[in-house]
Amino acid sequence: MSIKKHILETKSLAVGYQQKKSVAIIQQDINLQLLAGEFVTILGKNGIGKSTLLRTLTKVQEQISGDVFLQQKKIQSYSLKELSTTISLVLTEKLPESQLTVFELVALGRQPYTNWIGKLQENDIERITSALKLTETDDLAQKHFHELSDGQLQRVLIARALAQDTKIIMLDEPTAHLDMHHTIKIFQLLKKLSKETEKTIIITTHEVNLAINAADQLILLTENNVISGTKDELIASDSFNALFPSDIVNFNTSLEQFIIKKN
């Protein structure tokens, strides 16, 4: 086995909220090892801690205990600026209304690299145009972003993250508002990007069946623990059925899919 360095690693990580007197732990004993170029999906039911985990992995939120390592370095030792050139984000929150064009929006991804006034150099423009091309949004460049459909906007936000030129891109429910067609397109795009750009792409999602088939590595958040592995490993350990209560959906091993239980 060739020794590949982990781009992101957690050791006995516990995530949750520090309250005034007590600590609310949402998930603990999380041990992840993610490689460059991997497409990783975080799965789990509502309220199980997907967003909390994502926030902890991006230093938006402090961990309760344990460690997060980015390129073998503790995440606490990263400055905001260093972090901005290592991890980029695509969030679920709505963008405030403004008159930014698609090009300007994507160009904001170059902020960590530009001078005090944000002047774009040739290299920056190259990165922006290649990000627009990779996400097939180059024909939208001059539109205002508020004119876009949800599917287009999602691709533009991914282009912005690409332009930020980070080793890791994290996306919080990138297909939340999309129909089946556009959902599948986003999954294909993310998978393609992880292979072509060697970036580690981590998403949280409720599209379990798509995730199972597309992801290089899955992270399952269940009531009892956090398990990660490839599809085959997780099928072998029969881990998928722990994802949801068994009364409505079940994992079908031969179809490699969740199916609705028939009465």
């Binding site: 905001l80 050139t85 929150e93 930020q164």
Partner: peptide, 10 residues
């Protein structure tokens, strides 16, 4: 883009 994106841009 909102404060969260702002922070993630350093």
């Amino acid at each position: 883009l909102g404060e969260n994106y702002s922070k993630s841009l350093g």
